[in-house]
């Protein structure tokens, strides 16, 4: 009886929440937008150094957000790595012996790397960019990890720390340099906008892939001596 009451109250709360939100959406939809953002963006796209509007927003107009985002990602990666037992970073127990899977990996890991490079390159004038390329790069690392291809570079050593910190530090360096050069924080000089954005995108890709891969790898694995679920009563 009490459970029914709890569910009923929760359903009522959620329905009220949905109703209020829907009403708000309806009212906002009735009013016109105060500024025409797409128009404003299209006017200023030439000054940004890239041709794709979303990349321009991410890495030029709203690059402060992206800087904070990569900061959050690095913090999450550090937190994840600190949870890991060091033994789980490379696990010979995970190595596959299945020939089909092995062949699949040999074909797919290079394909994914090429795809990541393509997406990064496409980001300047087409959909694509650092985030998507970073996700695909991380996925290729996950693929290697799933089949147990040893990844020595992911030991908590120099390369991992370097990869984690690279994106954030280069981004911050550019920001501080532009602030010292006289203009505002993170305002690129217009002549250098394109190469700067390119450099930042490359290091961001690398860093995002490292963070995601490190977070995936640092989850504790089932050990053989661990009691499996269902047999320890």
């Amino acid at each position: 009886m009490m459970r029914f009451l709890g569910v009923a109250i929760m359903v009522a709360i959620c329905l009220a929440f949905a109703g209020g939100l829907a009403l708000t959406v309806w009212q906002i939809a009735g009013t016109p937008a105060p500024v025409n953002l797409p128009h404003l963006l299209a006017e200023n796209l030439d000054a940004s150094g890239v041709d794709h509007p979303i990349t321009a927003v991410l890495l030029n107009f709203r690059s402060y957000d992206t800087l904070l985002e990569i900061g959050v990602l690095v913090i999450a990666g550090i937190a994840g790595i600190s949870m890991a037992k060091t033994t789980s970073l490379e696990d010979p127990d995970l190595r596959t012996s299945d020939s089909l899977l092995y062949a699949l990996q040999r074909w797919f890991v290079p394909l994914m790397l090429v795809l990541a490079g393509y997406l990064l390159w496409a980001g300047s004038d087409r959909p694509g960019g650092a985030f998507q390329a970073g996700a695909v790069l991380a996925a290729s690392g996950v693929m290697m990890r799933l089949g147990g291809i040893p990844m020595d570079f992911l030991r908590p050593g120099m390369l991992l720390r370097f990869g984690l910190a690279l994106g954030f530090s280069v981004f911050l360096l550019v920001a501080v340099a532009s602030a010292l050069a006289g203009s505002a924080f993170l305002a690129y000089p217009e002549a250098f906008a394109k190469p700067l954005i390119l450099i930042i995108e490359v290091v961001l890709t690398f860093s995002i892939a490292m963070v995601l891969l490190a977070l995936f790898v640092s989850a504790p694995v089932n050990r053989t001596e661990e009691p499996e679920e269902g047999e320890a009563g």
Binding site: L94, T96, D98, L101, L104, F108, L111, M112, L115, Y118, L119, A122, R126, P127, G128, Q132, V136, A139, V142, M143, L146, G147
Partner: peptide, 24 residues
């Protein structure tokens, strides 16, 4: 035409779930 890239990504990466399934 950019959606072709999305289809390519989806085709390549949806393999990952089945690899995770058979290995884990």
């Amino acid at each position: 035409p950019a959606l072709m890239d999305v289809a390519l990504t989806l085709a390549v990466l949806s393999v990952l779930a089945i690899v995770a399934f058979v290995t884990r």
